[in-house]
Design a binder for these strands. Structure first.
Length: 154
DNA sequence: GCCAACGTTGGC
DNA sequence: GCCAACGTTGGC
């Protein structure tokens, strides 16, 4: 029984086109530095899970494609790299604090803009639309998943 | 650039 | 353990 997730990425860092251009159309999802989001990765994510790939902090925020979780969680390599903006001096290889997981593109979609999502009654329950939500990873219910795909014309 | 909202830090 | 101060997120 697969789960569904919405994962935010700033297109300046990793856009849907970057994912499409990556080897195997797969990128390691690194840089999660929030415990709640990490716990979703650690406790909830499984290979095969569906992902709504969301562009945030950009002129056109919204869902830009469908992806899939592949592989399993592993220590996020960027936390050990002093040159990385995601370096965490309080973490160690013995006790890694942050996790990464591989995400593979399923298909690019039309942009389902945040404004459209906000106007869609069937999407009103989505965590990403709730007031004050800042989590970069949020669970999506099967109903919400189906509603998004329907709206994307799938 | 602004600012609301939230998470984290650290002194006590 | 409390909570003020600070930092970050992210839409607008």
């Amino acid at each position: 029984m697969p789960n569904f997730w919405l994962m935010k990425s700033e297109p300046d860092e990793a856009s849907i086109d970057d994912l499409a251009a990556a080897p195997q159309q797969t990128l390691p999802w690194t840089g999660v530095r929030n415990y709640q989001a990490r716990n979703f990765m650690r406790d909830g994510m499984q290979p095969g899970d569906g992902v709504l790939f969301y562009h945030s902090s950009c002129p056109q925020p919204g869902v830009a494609g469908i992806a899939r979780i592949v592989g399993n969680v592993a220590p996020d390599e960027t936390q050990f790299d002093p040159k990385s903006p995601y370096f965490d001096p309080k973490s160690s290889r013995a006790a890694p604090r942050w996790l990464q997981i591989d995400v593979k593109l399923e298909r690019k979609t039309r942009l389902l803009a945040l404004a459209e999502m906000r106007g869609a009654p069937e999407l009103a329950t989505m965590r990403v639309l709730q007031r004050g939500n800042r989590l970069s990873i949020t669970p999506v219910t099967p109903q919400e998943w189906a509603a998004v795909l329907r709206r994307l014309g799938a």
